[in-house]
Computed example of a mutant assay.
Amino acid sequence: MKLNVNHISKRFGNTEVLKDVSIEIQSGEILSLTGESGCGKSTLLRIISGLETPDSGSISLDGEDITNWKPEHRNFGFVFQNLSLFPHLSVKENILYAIGKKERNPDRLGELISKTGLDGLTNRYPHELSGGQQQRVAIARALAINPRILILDEPFSSLDELLKAKIREEIFDLLKSLGITTILVSHQATDAFLISDKLVVMKKGEIQQYGKPSEVYQNPISPYVSDLFGASVIFKGKNVSANMVSTDFGSLKLENNRNDTLQLFVRPEKIEITNSEDYNLSGRVVKKEFKGPHDVLKIGNENSSEFISLETERCSIEVGDKIYLRVPENDIQIFE
């Protein structure tokens, strides 16, 4: 089931909430829309679902234009943020509610129960289920209509971090085993990162980056994208020559023809800390924080007000120590 979003734009009054957005979702893929609040991801989801009409552009499903189809004609399954389970209905009754009376047969119900791992729970009520089991009931109900595409709208936002991690893995395994094409919307980039085959990162109605999670993590195209997906270290740089950039912590050999002032992005796990003077950058530890199995070092320089923070394994480095940093040039991303 292939979905194409083609050059979608949308305004509400004088506010342009989507600007020429195009994406493609392949059959069986889990694609996540993420970004800060107000970036346009919810409006895009509503247009894909048929709840909103675009000002321009089109939506096609397996080559058929569905832009003006009503939501009920698109046959998409929905799992909402609050799950919307009926508290007075059992698991079985919640699932059957989505199935037309003509299609209500034991084989169909049994298939849904088996697929979603709810065996033995059919007579329980929502309050008697764990958070993960409630999620599975909501998915089973969405699957009951044999949807072309499954849509998950902020499915983890109401869960605490410990429960979220467990349920997120369960849901990912379930969706991949079902092989159903899925669109997930989340303002928590880490949720999208861990459950998706592809990511769409949005900002102010535009796509900032689109690709596999590993690609987006390793090669973000902007500080905005880099900060969404975990810790990052950014050195302020200045071009010295065609192949040398100066920072407050030392110089780096980088081939570039960018502007005089640059931002050098690198993931912290790529940086090595040592007391060897052979390494290319140096600084002094101005603060050390205990973080359980890790320490966080805040590193500065006598000649600058710039600081960077690095998480390390528990170490003997103390406040006031001078340290050296090895930053592999191949792992540096240059932002203007």
Results as ranks from 00 to 15, higher is better:
48 I>W: 09
73 H>D: 15
45 L>G: 12
61 L>E: 10
85 L>N: 05
49 S>T: 00
142 A>Q: 04
88 H>R: 06
156 F>C: 08
214 S>Y: 08
287 K>C: 08
48 I>G: 07
112 L>K: 02
111 E>N: 08
33 L>K: 03
336 E>Y: 04
288 K>L: 05
21 V>H: 07
91 V>H: 08
299 I>Y: 01
69 W>I: 05
304 S>V: 00
325 L>T: 01
33 L>A: 09
184 L>R: 05
330 N>Y: 06
332 I>V: 14
133 Q>R: 14
106 P>Y: 02
26 Q>L: 14
11 R>A: 13
224 Y>I: 03
96 L>I: 00
153 D>P: 08
254 L>F: 09
35 G>I: 09
300 G>W: 07
284 R>W: 04
199 L>S: 03
152 L>W: 05
167 I>S: 07
240 V>M: 12
23 I>T: 14
241 S>D: 14
77 G>K: 02
242 A>K: 15
205 G>N: 13
198 K>A: 11
118 L>W: 01
146 N>A: 04
47 I>W: 11
156 F>R: 14
19 K>W: 10
99 I>C: 03
203 K>M: 06
275 N>C: 04
174 L>C: 06
190 T>Q: 15
9 S>N: 09
261 T>A: 04
265 F>H: 15
231 A>L: 13
111 E>H: 00
312 T>Q: 08
81 Q>W: 08
90 S>R: 02
29 E>W: 12
166 K>D: 13
82 N>F: 09
81 Q>M: 11
35 G>V: 10
152 L>K: 09
61 L>S: 10
157 S>I: 04
152 L>V: 01
30 I>N: 03
169 E>R: 15
37 S>L: 02
37 S>N: 10
6 N>M: 06
104 R>W: 03
75 N>F: 05
38 G>C: 10
252 L>H: 02
40 G>I: 12
186 S>T: 15
255 E>I: 05
163 L>H: 11
207 I>V: 15
69 W>S: 13
269 E>H: 12
41 K>P: 14
62 D>L: 09
319 V>P: 05
42 S>Y: 03
195 I>V: 12
202 M>I: 10
225 V>R: 12
207 I>K: 13
303 N>D: 00
198 K>R: 15
32 S>A: 14
133 Q>T: 10
63 G>H: 07
